[in-house]
Amino acid sequence: MIFKFDKANSLSENDVTDESIYKQRRDILKKLGYLGAGSLLAASGSASAGPLDWFSSDKAEAFKTTPLSFKKSNLNLEIQTPEQKATSYNNFYEFGTGKGDPVEKAQSFQVDPWSLSIEGLVEKPITLGYEDLFSTFNLEERIYRLRCVEAWSMVIPWVGFSLASIIKKAQPLSSAKYVSFQTLYDPKQMPGQRSRFVGGGVDYPYVEGLRLDEAMQPLTMLSVGMYGKTLPPQNGAPIRLVVPWKYGFKSIKSIVKIVLTDKQPPTTWQNLASDEYGFYANVNPAVDHPRWSQARERRITSGGLLTQNRIDTLPFNGYEEVASLYKGMDLRKFY
């Protein structure tokens, strides 16, 4: 048994950062923006949140998340990333390539109604509506490390259920070997899908895939919430994958379709640059990205510049129990 859970506990308010800090930051950004617009330095919305983002509008009202009931995790060994940071520093190219773009541009994202289908090589295809995402399975909290391929990491309390439980419910055929996932394709709502410039040259919809045994590994989860509440859009509302031993880009967001297949499915980053991103994308300090080292990572916690931690990256992001899935495989070749 890998997880131990407390008795049911409805609605937690663990170390939720209060709204005021968030507002305060936005105000400062606004002031900076004002300063920026009058100056000679042209901003680039490219890879950063913060002072360069002076094109952002502040009109959008914040997306409303609702508290969930779930089994609370009693495993809390590491310092969690503050909620405010985990929900404002995101890679979600559908809303722009800057880390601050998703929180700026996704607040009016519609998650209800939603439809998630599980189909392909299964006995009983399933379709879940918005409410079903929260009521079909027992929700539990799991505190996982998230390691981005860009060499930063967070510790996030997710709420959700094992991917295995939904796959079992659909009854996979014996010919099913892989599971493919697809993000919503809705250019009206996702500016990155309307313009290749905003979306970083990615061919949408975003797709991901796992081997069936990886998908059935009990650590692999579908998350419908974080920090005790439903997911905000920038983190992949209403439902996303979380595979904690793989680089973050495997954990596909805002999923509409899960298809069981007999062939290895294509994945978005592999399509973009197959020499840099493989199908497996297991966290591995021994295999560098061609352009940067993966040996260490910067853990995002609270505090400014002077309290930043650089720590060693662990094989499989510290989830050694999955190593047996890859016995006999050359992980340099299957990166």
């Binding site: 400062i28 913060g50 940071k85 930063w152 995002i300």
Partner: peptide
């Protein structure tokens, strides 16, 4: 502008990853 951004970095007002924000700001 440079001083302000460094100050924000020191006081944790530069978003999720102040180091990355500063690298990007100074680089651009």
């Amino acid at each position: 502008w440079l001083i302000l951004v460094f100050y924000q970095g020191l006081t944790d007002q530069l978003g999720g990853d102040p180091v990355q924000s500063l690298l990007d700001f100074t680089g651009i």
